[in-house]
Design a protein around this nucleic acid. Sequence first.
DNA 1: ATAAACTTTTTGACAATGTCAAAAATAAAT
DNA 2: ATTTATTTTTGACATTGTCAAAAAGTTTAT
Lengths: 140, 140
Amino acid sequence: MHDPEAALRAHQLPITAQRLAVLREVSQQPHATADVIAEGVRQKIGSITRQSVYNVLNVLTEKGLIRRIQPADSAARYEDRVGDNHHHLVCRSCGHTEDVNCAVGHAPCLKAHSHHGFKIDEAEVIYWGLCPRCQKKRSA
Amino acid sequence: MHDPEAALRAHQLPITAQRLAVLREVSQQPHATADVIAEGVRQKIGSITRQSVYNVLNVLTEKGLIRRIQPADSAARYEDRVGDNHHHLVCRSCGHTEDVNCAVGHAPCLKAHSHHGFKIDEAEVIYWGLCPRCQKKRSA
DNA sequence: ATAAACTTTTTGACAATGTCAAAAATAAAT
DNA sequence: ATTTATTTTTGACATTGTCAAAAAGTTTAT
């Protein structure tokens, strides 16, 4: 995110210290959870309430400035890589998350044959496994 | 599930009224959440505690008798269709969930090129959209 | 610059979904 | 039948997130 201030303006969102800080934090720590973001922001601007973090994350998500992902057994995570069609690799043990470029192509990358009369708008893919660190821990 | 009792025995699980009832309920109401299952069980055997429902669902999931799915913005759901490689279609509006046969083939159905040193064991796919009912509601 | 109008942030309570630990009840094995 | 092991219940608690009203801040218009 090169210019958080411009990004907010582009979406007609009033500029506040909290919004700038949250936006920067999401950018610097992709896939962080709300409370990790809160901690990061506090170290930079002194303080922010839990509720404000949620407010900001929600409004940024609605406007499409950031993206929310919610893997099983984890609080929601946020990233600022939006607009493309990538997926995620999640560690079953520690929750560590990485991006994976789409194996197929454009969104929705998997055709679901318009099953059951549903109108499908997204195919979400999560690859589950063990990250390198946790593989080592197990074998130890 | 034709014979829940045999299924429990096959997995060396002591047979209890609660386990039989939960197993039957998951079978009859695929994709139900824990509290929906609890309600269903109560109508059949009179009473069961919230904790027992969780205990039973957890042990059945660990043993592979049932499968847990956890779509975003929903409590965990359970199904007794296990061992094959199918995915899910989830309604963004009401949470209604249906099975979708895998578009590709065998599990894990998508190769993730062993990215980033992860050891991948599953590719989970969720198709997001609107179910027929909710499509109608919107246009009304 | 200033004031008015609007939005955001804070504060504090609350809801939903799960888990933990110890006591009571039940099933299985001898 | 009795013992042993497991399960169920009971009640407290943790986490993640939301709701509503008051306080503080930002933007717009004068």
